[in-house]
Design a binder for these strands. Structure first.
Length: 640
RNA sequence: GCUGGAGUAGCUCAGUCGGCAGAGCGACGCACUCGUAAUGCGUAGGUCGCGGGUUCGAUUCCCGCCUCCAGCUCCA
């Protein structure tokens, strides 16, 4: 009998008789591992525990601590959910049931329309299936047998999946009790292994994402190894609901949205203070790095877009119209205008990098169903810039952009991950320039020692991009920053500079945005901070609260003194009692409340109350002003 | 854009099985002149999303459109 050799994660090699299963290997290592194992990974493949190992190689026993182990666990949860639905509505047809980032779903076609009220009933049935502890078995079927089996049961979606599988694909079905499903696997050894799970929602979803095909019902759920993890997940969801910027924004008097301008925000005074604080911050960082700030038109004749390629590649996302027989378009990006400005004069290699920054209005047509508060809008302002560089400056310029990005994100206490988005299906330019652009980005990241993932086909039509996903306080990821290398627009606009050799050369353009869209970034910040902004960002940094009308005059004086120091300070002029004024300020999440009455007026002080830690006692007005100014200058994340 | 749900006061919502529309909060006014999370009283505020149809009469029933919400898709 021959043997197979396995390399374990600790580097040791072990030999087992042919036909050994993952479960047996786990048992040979230890009792505890045998109990916790959910699957094994042999080389790149994840296999069921009960499956005889087909060959030797590096082997890892997977538990729920491994991401792949959790995937297996959730995949089985999907099957248990489908089995439960099938038990309640036996005619239900099944489509696909994959694992997603936070859980799983199954697209299915039950004979009834499901609502959230049906979820507890399905969950109850799932609990029964878990209690039955049904063994899950894997079977390899010939294609004809599988096709006939599912066709006979009217499983039209499964049949379509089978027909689309490549001819040489091995077809497997998994069986648990009476439930049989076409599935690549792998799965848990039995249904009793599932512990903490919950069904979350039901929504419509088109078969294969195609709106011309039938609308199926998608059941979402999630599962975790431990109840505490599930509880935490549910807490985050609930917290996200409470922090919804569409609710907090108007409540905090930051902005409103109106039906008369779908996808555009109305910025109120308070919100615009925050907006300007962000824009000023960006300006400050960019000025240090040699950026110039410009402002270009919002509306162009179509000639410009013909030249830039937008008319051909981006028009479905633009607002366009005809006037006096000519076509016009609202600008969706600043790059064409910046190219025009670059071309206005003869440029020397000594002028490069030339960095043009702009915060102006951009307008893009986004389909009505995609609009979402400030997170997806039609009217937007970006912290946008285009850096025109020589080829030998590309790496350094990208590194400089990432330095800027580190500084900005760091100020908000947010980390990020990087994706490299490569050439899309519809693209401009040649494969050669795309190759150079993609490697310029990848090489720079490697030089900087930054990890990144590749997102094939996600690039812009004119060039590949780095996408920076920030992580907020609830662990959610948001794509904000982007850095793109572009050889195409300089070509189309015939941009040139005179090199040291006296000859004309083509510059390379780097498109970059750090916060991305300000509207969107503010939406993210509202949810990240739950509306309780750091003092430097807070629309109202302090509010003066006179104990009674007798202290109004002194309060007015204090507010004026603080405003004269450039601080954002308002006065509560209402006729309410001090308790109510404090409550109002606290609910408005103002960092500092300055209570003033006779005592303070006599002493020239303010009684400081912090949003975070309550009463801090009395301080001279000047001392408070110094402390507040210092906190703002340092952009501290928390008030005292 | 597609599927489903929704649109009544600034906000949260009730209501009319077709007969001149209601509450709480908020806003405003008055009184109280108050010491660290809600003082009391009063007032104003609605073409019941928009357009058409049915009807003696439509916020209510029917049709179309717009917007929002949950998804699909797309993306900053």
């Amino acid at each position: 009998m021959s043997a197979i050799a396995l390399q374990m994660p600790d580097g040791k090699e072990a030999t087992f008789p042919e036909g050994v299963t993952g479960a047996e290997v786990a048992a040979s290592i230890g009792q505890r591992l045998a109990r916790d194992a959910v699957a094994v990974r042999l080389g790149e493949r994840v296999l069921d525990l009960a499956r005889p190992l087909p060959e030797g190689g590096p082997l890892r026993v997977l538990t729920l601590a491994d991401p792949e182990g959790l995937e297996v666990y959730r995949h089985t949860a999907t099957h248990i959910m489908a089995q439960a639905v099938r038990r309640i509505w036996p005619e239900t047809r099944l489509a696909i049931g994959p694992v997603i980032e936070d859980g799983f779903y199954y697209d299915m076609e039950p004979p009834v329309r499901l609502t959230e009220e049906d979820l507890p009933r399905i969950e109850a049935e799932m609990k029964k299936i878990v209690a039955e502890d049904l063994p899950v078995s894997r079977e390899v079927w010939p294609r004809a047998q599988a096709r006939a089996f599912f066709a006979e049961r009217g499983e039209v979606y499964k049949v379509e999946i089978i027909d689309d599988l490549p001819a040489d694909a091995e077809l497997t079905v998994y069986r648990q009790g009476e439930f049989v499903d076409l599935c690549r696997g792998p799965h848990l050894p039995s249904t009793g292994r599932l512990k903490a799970f919950k069904l979350l929602s039901v929504a419509g979803a088109y078969w294969r994402g195609d709106e011309k095909r039938p609308m199926l019902q998608r059941l979402y759920g999630t599962a975790f190894a431990e109840q505490t993890q599930l509880d935490h997940f549910l807490w985050v969801r609930e917290e996200a609901r409470k922090r919804d910027h569409r609710k907090l924004g108007p409540e905090l008097d930051l902005f409103t949205l109106h039906d008369v301008a779908p996808g555009f925000a109305f910025w109120h005074d308070k919100g615009f203070r925050l907006y300007r604080a962000l824009e000023d911050f960006s300006r400050e960082l960019q000025r240090k790095r040699g950026y110039q700030e410009v402002a270009t038109p919002v509306l162009f004749r179509s000639d410009l877009y013909e030249e830039s390629g937008h008319w051909g590649f981006f028009r479905p996302n633009m607002f366009t119209f005809q006037q006096d027989g000519e076509w016009y378009g609202m600008k969706p990006m600043n790059c064409p205008a910046h190219c025009i400005m670059f071309r206005e004069q003869m440029r020397s290699y000594r002028d490069l990098p030339l960095r043009l920054a702009e915060y102006g209005q951009l307008t893009r047509y986004e389909r009505s169903g995609t609009l979402h508060g400030l997170l997806r809008v039609r009217g937007m302002h970006q912290d946008d810039a285009h850096c025109f560089v020589r080829e030998d400056q590309i790496g350094a310029e990208i590194a400089d952009c990432i330095g800027l990005l580190d500084e900005l994100y760091g100020t908000f206490g947010m980390g990020y991950t990087i994706n490299l988005a490569t050439r899309p299906q519809e693209y401009m330019g040649t494969l050669e320039t795309w190759g150079r652009a993609e490697s310029a980005l990848a090489d720079t990241l490697r030089d900087l020692g930054k990890d990144f993932a590749i997102h094939p086909g996600d690039g812009a039509f004119y060039g590949p991009k780095l996408e920076f996903d920030i992580t907020d306080a609830l662990g959610r990821k948001w794509q904000c920053g982007t850095v793109q290398v572009d050889w195409n627009l300089p070509e189309r606009f015939d941009l040139k500079y005179i090199g040291a050799d006296g000859a004309e050369h083509r510059p390379v353009m780097i498109h970059r945005a750090i916060m991305g869209t300000l509207e969107r970034f503010i939406g993210i910040l509202i949810e990240h901070f739950a509306g309780a902004f750091p003092t430097w960002l807070a629309p109202e940094q302090a509010r003066v609260l006179p104990v009674s009308d007798k202290a109004q005059a002194y309060g007015r004086q204090v507010a004026a003194d603080l405003r004269a120091r450039g601080l954002r300070v308002d006065l509560d002029k209402s006729a309410e009692k001090i308790g109510k004024k404090i409550r109002d300020a606290q609910m408005a999440k103002v960092p500092y409340m300055l209570v003033v009455g006779e005592r303070e007026e006599q002493a020239g002080t303010v009684a400081v109350r912090s949003r975070a830690s309550g009463d801090l006692g009395a301080e001279p007005v000047a001392a408070f002003a110094d402390a507040l100014a210092a906190e703002v200058a340092e952009r501290r994340l928390q008030p005292r």
